[in-house]
């Protein structure tokens, strides 16, 4: 059992938790993920590591309530226990030798982008951040990004905060203005990463994307997380989750990600009903 040490709601849909898992914290690096089960009979879900404290032995996760399992997880509080928490899994984000990087985060993906930005900043790399949200209510981690980015642009779809528009807008402007990035790192919804790649490819700016497909074991056994990268089948759990954005087949990944949509919607509404009943 793994104790939740700290919990904070970052907005109405996004929750941050620190979970006691000293073995995971000891080895965790930015870009890696964990798999957890909330309780017995729960499903195994992957969540990318949003931070870790080796002294305290805790691992930070930040998640958005999107389905039945994240709904159940959101009802857990500090002092409660999770039944399983395993990691760190996947290959850490490659940072060696980078001098100037643009980090593009979208929505809850910003939670995963942050530790990478912090590591790059600590290494002395020049970090430009572009973080995008649907609206001001959904904004997260702005101060944390400001602290580790040499430049930060906040975008909202509706213009309720920062600049209005999508993240690719300032990205393209920066590239056109002659910013010579060693790498662009995009972490967010698949559709955002697809368009980031479409933006950088004409300029041949190397772009790394962090993929988060459906997984079960997360250790290279089930093959559920397979993606087509450069025409080859790759497994996000052991070969990724970071891949060369120019080579990823995003359309296929988006289609595969929707396989359980019907089931998920049903399970989500059932779980919500369950919690409503408990309240009554």
């Amino acid at each position: 059992m793994y104790k939740i040490i700290y919990k904070k709601c970052l907005n109405d849909f996004v929750i941050m938790m620190d979970v006691e898992a000293p073995l995971v914290a000891r080895k965790a690096e930015p870009g890696q993920f964990i798999i957890l089960r909330v309780d017995e009979n729960g499903e195994r879900i992957p969540l990318t590591i949003a931070g870790f404290d080796q002294k305290q032995g805790t691992v930070r996760i930040i998640f958005q309530v999107v389905g039945a399992t994240t709904k159940k997880l959101s009802h857990k509080n500090a002092g409660d226990y999770l039944s399983d928490f395993v990691g760190p899994l996947g290959t850490p984000t490659h940072t060696e030798g980078l001098k100037k990087v643009c980090i593009v985060g979208g929505g809850v993906g910003c939670a995963i982008a942050l530790p990478v930005a912090q590591k790059l900043h600590a290494m002395g790399c020049e970090v430009h951040g572009i973080i995008g949200f649907r609206s001001k209510d959904l904004l997260i981690l702005e101060d944390e990004f400001r602290a580790c980015c040499n430049q930060l642009t906040v975008m909202t779809d509706d213009g309720s905060y920062g600049r209005q528009g999508v993240v690719t807008l300032p990205l393209e402007e920066a590239i056109q203005a002659g910013e010579a990035y060693d790498e662009v790192l995009a972490i967010g919804p698949l559709i955002m990463m697809k368009f980031v790649v479409a933006t950088t490819k004409p300029y041949q700016v190397k772009t790394i994307v962090s993929m988060n497909p459906i997984m079960i074991d997360g250790t290279g056994m089930c093959g559920g997380c397979r993606l087509t990268v450069g025409g080859e089948t790759k497994f996000a759990c052991v070969d990724g989750p970071d891949f060369d954005g120019f080579s990823v087949d995003f359309d296929e990944a988006m289609q595969r990600g929707s396989i359980y949509n019907n089931y998920e919607r049903h399970a989500y509404s059932e779980t919500c009903n369950l919690f409503t009943k408990e309240v009554e």
Partner: peptide, 8 residues
């Protein structure tokens, strides 16, 4: 929940 090669 211990992956040898990763956790240890």
């Amino acid at each position: 929940n211990v992956v040898i090669g990763k956790t240890i």
